[in-house]
Simulated assay, not measured.
Amino acid sequence: MKNDSSTECWNKVGIEWYLYAQTNDFRMDFIMPFTLKQLGDVSGKMILDIGCGEGGYSRELAKKGAIVTAVDCTEVAINYSKLKAEEEQLNISHYVRNSNDLQGIPDNTFDIVLSSMMLMDCEDLNGTVKEISRVLKLGGKLLVSILHPCFNGKDIHWSGGNIVPQVVINNYFSPTEWEAPIAKSINSIVIWRHRTLQEYIKTFVKNHLNIIDLNEPIPDDQQISESPRLGFLSKIPMFLFFELEKIV
């Protein structure tokens, strides 16, 4: 596997992160339901879950009848994903790979590639998108979710309590990276990256991926009642979803 700053920092993250991810309300009650709804009927579809983490999406897609390949740069994540798939008797192929080098996966293999909340973590954005495009079939779809570059990153200031946080953008046009804990309750340090929207879009276009949909989803009343802090997302979009199609 090719190593870079992304793989090095994420390989220092322990199992506690992958357990936490399965209890996080933003992921479980908002991002994942929206993602699965956008993917629709996946029965019989060849799907790559790139940056699969603990494999939650891979398992849900396999249960829905998809033929799933799960890739992550960390052995901890892949080993956990394999274990959970075996426990649930799900047939999922697993690879430990840097997302910019999907060695062993042939060209034009997948109907769908899912990249959930991982592109902003890649050191090599163009290399990753190039590899995604390579393994997608012509006309295949890529569903991407990222932290919204206009409203998220190191310049969100939480006021505490039940007060709605303020979002302060100091320099949107200055792509940068910094080190910080992966979550307030987890001490593992990872590299966070800010990129502009135009960098993402130009990278997609360069690699023959055409944007066919874009969403800044808003939580519904039921989601907010189950997790009140999701109400913030009805005012400020923390997450941005692209749907793309391979055209060449």
Rank of each mutant, 00 (worst) to 15 (best):
G44D: 08
N91Y: 14
Y95V: 03
V76G: 03
Y80M: 13
S58N: 08
S58F: 06
S99D: 13
H94R: 07
S93H: 09
I67E: 09
I67Y: 08
I47N: 02
T74C: 02
K45D: 01
L48N: 02
E54V: 08
Q38H: 05
S81I: 02
I92P: 08
I78R: 06
F34A: 02
C73W: 05
S43H: 12
N91Q: 13
L48K: 04
G40V: 06
S93I: 13
N100D: 14
G55L: 00
I50R: 01
Q103L: 14
L39C: 06
G56S: 11
K37G: 07
N100S: 15
G51Y: 02
N79V: 01
Q103Y: 15
S58W: 06
L61S: 05
S43K: 14
C52D: 01
H94M: 07
Y95H: 14
G51I: 00
K82Y: 07
I67F: 13
G55F: 07
S93C: 06
T74K: 01
G55V: 03
T35K: 05
V71Q: 05
L83S: 15
L61E: 01
V71L: 03
K64A: 13
D41V: 02
V71A: 05
I47S: 04
S93T: 15
I50Y: 00
L102Y: 04
S81V: 01
D72Y: 07
E54N: 04
S58D: 07
A77L: 03
L39Y: 11
R59V: 07
G40F: 10
L48W: 12
L36Q: 00
E88K: 02
G53Q: 05
T69E: 03
I92C: 12
Y95C: 04
K84I: 09
K63G: 11
F34N: 11
L36N: 01
V71F: 13
T69Q: 01
S58E: 07
R97Y: 10
V71H: 03
Q38R: 15
E88R: 05
E60S: 12
G56Y: 15
A70P: 04
H94S: 01
K63S: 09
C73T: 14
I92A: 11
K63D: 02
C52E: 04
G56N: 05
A62G: 02
I47Y: 06
C52M: 08
I47P: 07
D49P: 00
G44L: 08
E60Q: 11
E60Y: 09
Q103S: 13
P33G: 04
S81Y: 10
I67G: 00
L90G: 14
M46I: 01
D72C: 03
T35S: 12
L48V: 08
A70I: 05
G55P: 03
